[in-house]
Amino acid sequence: MTLVKAGVVVLDCAEPEKLAAFYKELLEGEQTDASANLVEIRGADGVRLAFRRDVNATPPSWPRPENSLQAHLEFLVDDLDEAERRIVGLGGRPLETRDPAGPYEERGYADPAGHSFTLRLVPTRAPKQG
């Protein structure tokens, strides 16, 4: 029997109901639990997120270089442009406007409460030649 099981990522925010609705729609998920101060969702692929009420919550300052990135969410997508349109339509905003150089194409965003997250393009696997 496993002693420690995978848990849930919890984000502090002033309005957990609104933030849960953003991620529920983005991840095509469902709400699984709610109380006065906590709302939990499960995305269509099984990822679990919770949102805890903190009336004094302030958004992280990332990506400003004078502050370190302490934690952020990363989601894999097949189409960065389509995912960006969905995020903006749900109330999120881009943090980085260009794709960084390197083997992965990714873009940074903030949810409506200011938490940062990254979309990373799922690399296409070309069939082997020869």
Rank of each mutant, 00 (worst) to 15 (best):
E66F: 09
P100G: 11
K24C: 13
E105L: 13
L80T: 06
P94A: 08
P16Y: 01
D12M: 05
N67M: 15
R85W: 03
A101E: 12
A6I: 14
P59M: 03
W62Y: 12
V8T: 14
M1S: 15
I41Q: 00
L11M: 09
A101S: 07
A20P: 06
S61C: 14
A36G: 04
V9K: 08
R86N: 01
R125W: 02
E25C: 04
D33A: 11
A113N: 02
Y23K: 09
D45I: 10
G46N: 04
L49A: 00
G7R: 00
G108F: 15
R125F: 11
P63T: 04
V55P: 04
E17Q: 14
N67W: 12
Y109M: 09
R48P: 02
Q31M: 14
S35R: 08
G43Q: 01
V9Y: 02
G7T: 11
G91D: 06
F117T: 03
G29A: 02
E96N: 12
P94Y: 08
P103H: 07
P60G: 13
D81I: 13
Q70I: 14
R48Q: 06
R93P: 15
P63Q: 04
A50N: 05
D12A: 12
P63V: 13
V4T: 12
P16E: 11
L27G: 04
E28P: 12
R85S: 10
R120D: 07
V47K: 02
I41D: 04
R64V: 15
L119R: 04
A44N: 01
N67Y: 14
C13L: 02
G43E: 09
R86T: 11
H115G: 11
G29K: 09
R52M: 12
G46T: 06
P59L: 11
D33C: 09
A113E: 10
N37S: 09
D12G: 07
V122G: 00
P103Q: 06
L26M: 05
E15W: 01
A21T: 12
P103F: 07
A14G: 13
P103S: 09
L90T: 02
G102T: 03
M1W: 02
R125A: 07
E28V: 14
V39M: 10
A6D: 00
T118Y: 09
R48E: 01
P94F: 11
P112L: 04
G43V: 05
V47P: 03
P59T: 03
A36S: 03
G46K: 02
L95M: 00
T2Q: 07
Q31S: 09
A113Q: 06
E84G: 08
E66Y: 08
G29E: 09
S35N: 01
A50T: 01
Q129C: 05
R93D: 08
D78G: 09
L38N: 12
L49F: 00
Y104G: 01
T118Q: 09
M1V: 14
T2A: 14
G91V: 15
N56M: 14
N37D: 10
K128P: 03
V10S: 05
E28Y: 11
V47F: 05
V122A: 05
E40M: 11
V88A: 02
R86M: 03
Q70V: 15
P65E: 10
R120N: 01
R48F: 01
A36I: 03
M1H: 00
G92H: 07
D12C: 06
K24S: 00
L26D: 05
G108K: 08
G108L: 14
G43L: 01
V55A: 14
R85K: 13
T58G: 13
R125L: 14
